[in-house]
Design a binder for these strands. Structure first.
Lengths: 207, 207
DNA sequence: CGGAACTATGACAGTTGTATGACAACGCAC
DNA sequence: GTGCGTTGTCATACAACTGTCATAGTTCCG
């Protein structure tokens, strides 16, 4: 999963078939990876249900290399079947091949997820617990900059440079915009839980 | 090959990459199996050429199970890659999976749907809640351009380039046409719900 | 405890970005 | 040529955003 993120994918993990089905209904991913050894619902049944709901590409990853399983999974509606251990490069290439075929028209939108905070950079959109939040351009750029370095402290200087293209400038400016951003993305701006201050250093976006 | 015929496929065999390419041009099969160890043209090149000509599903069958080869074949345009020895049942199931997906594409491309807004690019037609809307050529192209990137913000520059073929030009021009388009596709052009402004960035068509 | 350093926030005026109506130029059919 | 729809430019009005500053609140440490 981490390896896939390195390849540039945004990954949402679930621990059971039920969770996966629910998550997919609530907010469809553009590709689904299924492990046939999941607890709960039978894996093939899971594929069938996914396929019934929509035509998202489904890739099965499994430790079993029995032809019978492979055929059953494909019949159930899977688009590809990989036997563990899987080379990430291969998985990534197969995902690309699938996407090329299925969704050639649609452009993929990447999502940065921080708990219930989602950031869609290309869509210029930010959602908090599913509902869109209206941010100004500066707030948005600030948030993206922080989001690109999850959990890392960025100094005011760094933020001034990257968000404002200022080589020099009043560092207080950053404070003001962080404050405004907090009003919009924190439940209680007095006790920030996502965008936290690191005294003497700067700010960071909590994973 | 014989085994495949038993599964109900009609199979045409060729003994070299050149023959295969020619045969496919003369009388296209609906799926192509490629063996990477063919004499003559390099197998990857063969895939690329097939892919260039049309978007027939391509399945590679090869004795080599090196990840590097698999990735290269998929990158070249293959849809699937099987390592010999191949179970006929599996191959058959994978061909069916591919064909299933291929069909889905054809139906998916023709209409772009955004809620009750339908766009038929080839037909040059736009319908709002079922009733046709009369758009000018520029408005139509603008809408199509936005529709091809659902939910993504397009900058005025990008739109100028893609709709007007202007490398430089007054960005206000875009505003004006967006305004005119809104008059026609929004219920209340004061509060756009479909074609929304992302201040400081551009415009996007809401999914 | 008290001061210094650091951070948060509210208010304000200047600036920027967007929407829209008016208009002249253009192409095209008749 | 006349009439009509379309196109690009412009000026204006309005709304939203930005940066600065003053003030108030924290945290740290001797």
């Amino acid at each position: 999963m981490l390896a896939l993120e390195d390849e540039g994918y945004t990954v949402r993990g679930v621990s059971s078939a039920e969770d996966g089905l629910l998550a997919q209904r609530a907010e469809p991913a553009d590709t689904v990876l299924v492990d046939l050894m999941l607890p709960g619902v039978d894996g093939f049944e899971c594929i069938r249900q996914l396929r019934r709901d929509d035509d998202v590409p489904i890739v099965v990853v499994s430790a079993r290399d029995d032809t019978h399983d492979i055929v059953a999974a494909l019949e159930a509606g899977a688009d590809d079947y990989l036997v563990k251990p899987v080379a990430v490069k291969e998985l990534s290439a197969r995902l690309r091949a699938l996407r090329r075929r299925g969704r050639a028209v649609l452009t993929a939108v990447s999502t940065l997820v921080f708990g219930d905070l989602e950031i869609l950079p290309e869509a210029g959109e930010v959602r908090l617990a599913g509902t869109p939040v209206a941010l100004t351009r500066t707030e948005f750029r600030l948030l993206c900059e922080l989001a690109e370095h999850p959990g890392l402290v960025l100094t005011r200087q760094q933020l001034l440079q990257r968000v404002w293209d200022y080589d020099v400038g009043d560092e207080r400016l950053v404070d003001v915009h962080v404050g405004r951003l907090r009003q919009k993305i924190e439940d209680d701006s007095r006790t920030p839980r996502r965008l936290v201050t690191v005294r003497g250093m700067g700010y960071k976006l909590q994973r």
